[in-house]
Design a binder for these strands. Structure first.
Length: 823
RNA sequence: GCCGGGGUGGCGAAACUGGCAGACGCCAUGGGCUCAAAAUCCAUUGGGCCGCAAGGCCCGUGCGGGUUCGAAUCCCGCCCCCGGCACCA
């Protein structure tokens, strides 16, 4: 027997594919295209089995589509800017670029060893100046259009590290690196106006029919569109205060008003009231409460009466104005009308401070009373005690009262969103420099296109203290004003790395293009992306940013698409010891060891077989032997027939076949159907692998019976089909086996086997016969036999169970079962 | 609290639109080959019971109800797990 030397076989075929440029593609209008994309990895140091899983899924689909005649683009690159590289510089004195490049080299070797079908000539790294110059170019276009802007905003600031931190880097209110308590600071920062697209981000979801609903739901919540009304409440002795409410129908139940402690009117309102000092102190205390805890509702509701009163614009009633910690300045208008009878938060606040609770909405079939209410009734009902608006259904009341407020000029229907503009400033070295300079004379100036890229200086002091290293590189900071030519200061903020990943999939189309971010004609050919596979954890951030970016590109006239991705497939995460596998958790498993012991084909097969691709997967190696044994078994099967198949001429399949030969052909064509639909429709690669195993089992069952004589052609058909069907999963072994049975040319260039539906169809079927819902017998009948044929046979088979009983009903489910109902 | 997804053998999992629950694989047990072991091949493998045997019976998809000739699948009410969002007015 020829030994299965996977190491030798795999590296040899990898070299042959590379030599032949097998996976290099160009636009070819003669073939339908398929853009198969995976989320590019951050070069943290090692490919781990979480990456492997992601890339195995796309590789199987890419190879399958290729065999189906598609021109397949399946590229890879590196999300190469970001904090870990800079931290390595701080902690170990390695330059971020050096660290990153060496990680990329190592991870690239790992990916190549797995045999993924990448066109390596299209590889990109976002830390390459020829990549990030286009980040800068996009930024300038956005600056011109007012999409990019500078504004003050409260941000997480670490006093020890002297830098702004992203939210996820300040978890629990502590700096992730030095564990100092993070402060809230008002700082001037760069933003992208994603809120200009908030409605489109929601409405264009109609084009995303092939995205999982749960991702769309998450995005919908993230945008958080909420329809309601703004209402101005007149204030005694001051200008009116505007509130936002989704429930204007409850306005007669408003017994007080609450302002956020940060509300700009608070200061003026409390000026001059009798116990001003005490109230100011209370407000200051509320303001200093931990913002995060306040937002999360983990702080008990607290407030203070301002001593001032407002007037309900509907009922005219006088209501006290409070300041409360549960009202947030970042949402709506930062002020609410409090309706304790119909809002749980207002209710809790009212009970604590003994404020009036009034019922103005009565639910169906109940009579609520404000004095005895134990919780707010937040649901719908009929308006009561609401003056001329009483007796209306909630929805109708909302509509009519909004119109009334508008007609009187004290309110209007409005929509609020939870989505905030995207803060892209980072006080970090290893990111894309924001291409602007500040001139004392001309102010903020964008760097002219022809001066791009604004390069990161090679050397900077990586001390981890004293803020952004770029600020301490005088040659970088010193700039010339593009307008007046005078001395100017260069912006030292760099961009959030989510910018890089928002459009990288366009760069793959023309990765070396020097006069633009990508080639528009290539984009017309390849876009939209047909399949995008990546971790569920990116359901919002990355995927919202990417959608936003494409819309901006469309408005810049660069593309004609609304949405870049037709089908999204979020693959389940790989866990280890109950936790998501990731470098930052330090629980990664690299594929190298498994490859050394079993080879890449076994690893690929195993990782796809062990669970459905969308499910979370706990990494264990217990079943890996099974996958390896399967490859070995097929290897030996091929080995037994290789010489013969390679030398003998191909004989046609005889017209008359024995039952075992017919059964095998049936199985072959059923397997083709099954694997095709599992890969194509549901991407259920685990059941596709199971089907391949079943086919092998069937072949080995009848192998001896048909190994000699003319029926050998059936065996040959079966083995060839098996090798071809396996090839997206175990490409190297398949190439090798294909060659050994005397077939020329790459398996990857072969057409996918075609299923013959007539052959696949069963000739006769076994039906279960139920009596009273229990299976009592089995009968064999011709396929699609109707009741005429089935009934006598079925009744004979269950004679002792129906004897002496009346047959009430006789159900035949074709090719499945028979159900006899007796009395 | 709200929104998603899910609970099926010792384990990973199958079961397309209500139609034979447990495909496929792991583990385990028994057997063949071997001086022996590894590898490999064959058989058994949800639980319980009856039978010398061929074979047969009962129970079983988180829990409790329901619809149906028939429910892992549909409906109602619970319990638990995972993911996301969260004083969002």
């Amino acid at each position: 027997m020829t030994e299965y030397d996977f190491e030798e076989i795999e590296t040899r075929w990898q070299a042959r594919w590379a030599e032949a440029g097998t996976f290099e593609v160009t636009e070819n209008p003669a073939h339908p295209k398929y853009y198969c994309l995976e989320m590019l990895p951050y070069p943290s140091g090692d490919i781990h089995v979480g990456h492997v899983r992601n890339y195995c899924i796309t590789d199987v689909v890419a190879r399958y589509k290729r065999m189906r005649g598609f021109n397949v683009l399946h590229p890879i690159g590196w999300d190469a800017l970001g904090m870990p590289a800079e931290n390595a510089a701080i902690q170990r004195g390695v330059h971020p670029e050096k660290w990153t490049r060496s990680n990329i080299a190592g991870m690239k070797r790992q990916l190549q060893r797995l045999g993924f079908s990448y066109p390596w000539s299209r590889e990109i790294a976002t830390c390459d100046p020829e990549y990030y110059r286009w980040n800068q170019w996009f930024f300038l276009r956005m600056l011109e259009r007012g999409i990019a802007y500078r504004a003050k905003s409260p941000v997480n600031w670490c006093p020890k590290c002297q830098t702004v931190l992203a939210n996820e880097q300040a978890e629990g209110g502590e700096c992730w690196r030095c564990h100092s308590t993070v402060e809230q600071r008002e700082l001037e920062q760069w933003f992208l106006r994603i809120t200009a697209y908030q409605d489109e981000l929601l409405d264009d979801m109609e084009e995303l029919g092939n995205w999982p609903e749960r991702v769309l739901v998450q995005q919908r919540n993230w945008v958080g569109r909420s329809t309601g009304a703004e209402v101005d409440f007149p204030v005694e002795g001051a200008d009116p205060i505007r509130v936002f409410t989704t429930r204007i129908d409850t306005i007669y139940g408003a017994t007080f008003m609450v302002l956020a402690p940060e509300h700009p009117r608070v200061d003026a309102l409390v000026t001059g009231i009798p116990d001003e000092a005490r109230v100011r102190e209370a407000v200051a205390r509320l303001r200093s409460q931990d913002r995060r805890a306040r937002q999360a509702g983990q702080v008990e509701k607290e407030g203070v009466f301002t001593g001032r009163y407002a007037k309900n614009p509907f009922g005219g009633e006088r209501i006290p104005i409070w300041v409360g910690n549960f009202v947030l300045m970042g949402y709506g208008t930062g002020a609410i009308m409090a309706v304790p009878g119909h809002d749980q938060r207002d209710f809790e606040f009212a009970r604590r401070y003994g404020l009036d609770v009034r019922v103005v909405i009565q639910p169906e079939g109940a009579v609520l009373d404000g004095g005895t209410l134990e919780a707010a009734h937040a649901g719908p009902g009929r308006t009561v005690a609401s003056g001329e608006w009483s007796g209306l259904d909630s929805a109708e009341a909302i509509a009519r009262m909004t119109v009334f407020a508008e007609s009187k000029g004290f309110g209007r229907g409005t929509v609020t969103y939870r989505l905030r503009d995207w803060l892209i400033s980072r006080q970090r070295y290893w990111g894309t420099p924001i291409p602007v300079v500040y001139c004392p004379k001309d102010g903020l100036q964008g760097v002219p296109d022809e001066k791009l890229p604004v390069l990161l200086p090679k050397d900077a002091p990586f001390t981890g203290e004293g803020g952004n290293p770029l600020e301490n590189v005088p040659e970088f900071v010193t700039a010339k004003c593009p307008r007046c030519g005078g001395a100017a200061r260069r912006e030292t903020d760099t961009m959030d790395t989510f910018v890089d990943s928002s459009w990288y999939f366009y760069r793959y189309l023309s990765p070396r293009k020097a006069d633009g971010p990508f080639d528009a004609r290539s984009a017309r050919y390849w876009f939209p992306i047909d399949l995008y596979v990546g971790g569920t954890e990116h359901a919002i951030l990355h995927l919202v940013y990417a959608r936003f970016w494409t819309k901006v590109m469309r408005d810049l006239g660069l593309v004609t698409l609304n949405e870049p991705v037709v089908r999204l497939f979020p693959q389940g995460m790989v866990h280890k010891d109950g936790q998501v596998m990731s470098k930052s958790r330090g629980n990664t498993i690299a594929p190298d060891d498994v490859i050394r012991r079993y080879g890449a084909d076994t690893l690929r097969l195993y990782i796809l077989f062990v669970a459905p691709p969308e499910d979370a997967l706990e990494w264990k190696e217990e079943g890996i032997e099974g996958a390896h044994k399967f490859v070995l078994r097929v290897w030996r099967l091929v080995d037994r027939h290789a010489t013969d198949f390679a030398s003998a001429i191909r004989t046609p399949i005889p017209a008359e076949l024995s039952e075992p030969a017919r059964a095998l052909r049936r199985k072959v064509h059923q397997t083709i159907q099954r694997v095709t639909s599992d890969v194509e429709e549901r991407i259920h690669l685990n059941t596709a692998v199971a089907a391949l195993m079943e086919l092998y089992n069937k072949i080995s069952e009848v192998e001896e019976a048909i190994a000699e004589g003319p029926e050998r052609a059936v065996l040959r058909e079966a083995i060839e089909a098996l090798v071809l069907l396996m090839s997206p999963f175990t490409p190297h072994a398949s190439e090798e086996m294909w060659e050994r049975i005397g077939r020329r040319r790459f398996v990857v260039d072969r057409p996918w086997p075609a299923a013959d539906a007539a052959v696949a169809r069963e000739e006769s079927v076994e039906l279960a016969v139920q009596v009273g819902g229990k299976v009592r017998a089995r009968i064999v009948v011709p396929r699609d036999a109707d009741e005429h044929v089935v009934r006598p046979q079925a009744l004979a088979a269950v004679a002792e169970h129906v004897r002496g009983k009346e047959i009430v009903k006789f159900v035949v489910v074709a090719n499945r079962l028979v159900s006899v109902v007796v009395r």
